[in-house]
């Protein structure tokens, strides 16, 4: 069964139509990259799937209509990493990561051993265990990004939506993050991740979805989606294509037409 099925999804921000009749599915074990230029509708798509925006169309999670799950039911199925990284209070990294367990806790009941284990594993995967006692407001941007990723992993859901999670990370942690997503997919989970790093997406994802001005214009294997013609048409760039360590290399090198 398709883990996430999006059909005929349209959404508007104010009077501007941001998503126009988008349909696709994500299966179990898939790591799907969501790409497209600024304003293509990537974040709007992810937020619509989360029910954070009003949208038209249908979203099904494991075959069930998302609206019928209720907010807690949905939170046990999908975790979401927002693009905007926000922490209001100086709480410890461990307490912050533990927030990911909220959908699994009954009212007033404390964390169980299994919850703590999920928190520990998430911190380990994101390489933030060493900061567990530090205040989250005192971290660097990249450190905070990894802590927030750990928060989403602690939610331990079958589906993970991540909105530009790699932005602001150093190269090692970018690759590490995508490898972690790969591991989650190999465990049978599904990950949909938006990014502007075409090279990273090409090397890590099994499938790419390309949005342009609210429409889905390509959906397929990285080498099918990332062609010189599409990059020129959609992004307006010329790119260097190559191969290294058994994977595809895509590097935008110049503008194909004056902006």
């Amino acid at each position: 069964m398709t883990r996430l099925a999006v059909s005929h999804l349209s959404a508007s921000l104010g009077k501007r139509q941001v998503l126009d009749d988008v349909s696709f599915g994500v299966g179990a074990g898939e790591l799907v990259g969501l790409i497209g230029p600024n304003g293509a509708g990537k974040s709007t798509l992810l937020r619509s799937i989360m029910g954070l925006l009003r949208s038209k169309g249908e979203i099904r999670l494991d075959g069930v209509r998302a609206e019928s799950l209720g907010s807690r039911g949905r939170a046990r199925k999908v975790a979401y990493m927002a693009q905007r990284r926000e922490v209001a209070w100086a709480m410890s990294v461990e307490a912050l990561v533990a927030l990911g367990r909220l959908p699994h806790l009954e009212r007033l009941s404390p964390m169980r051993a299994s919850d703590q284990a999920a928190v520990d594993r998430a911190m380990q995967l994101m390489d933030v265990t060493a900061y567990r006692q530090r205040e989250a407001t005192a971290l660097s941007g990249g450190e905070l990004a990894r802590v927030l990723a750990a928060r989403a992993l602690a939610q331990d859901t079958p589906l993970l939506l991540a909105d530009e999670p790699a932005a602001g990370l150093d190269p090692a942690h970018q690759i590490g993050l995508m490898q972690t997503f790969r591991t989650l997919a190999d465990e049978g989970r599904s990950v949909l991740v938006s990014t502007h790093d075409l090279g990273l997406a090409a090397r890590s994802c099994t499938r790419l979805i390309l949005l342009d001005r609210g429409r889905l214009v390509a959906d397929g294997m990285p080498e099918e989606v990332l062609t010189p013609e599409t990059l020129r048409a959609v992004y307006g760039v010329n790119a260097y294509f190559g191969e290294a360590e058994g994977g595809m290399v895509v590097l935008p090198v110049g503008l194909s037409a004056p902006i």
């Binding site: 989360m50 046990r76 927002a82 990911g100 909220l102 959908p103 939610q155």
Partner: peptide, 17 residues
């Protein structure tokens, strides 16, 4: 309110109404 520390949208994604 704990969940809201991470902003309204993340709190909503954690199942907070």
């Amino acid at each position: 309110l704990d969940a809201l520390t991470l902003g309204g949208e993340t709190a909503a994604s954690l199942g907070i109404d």
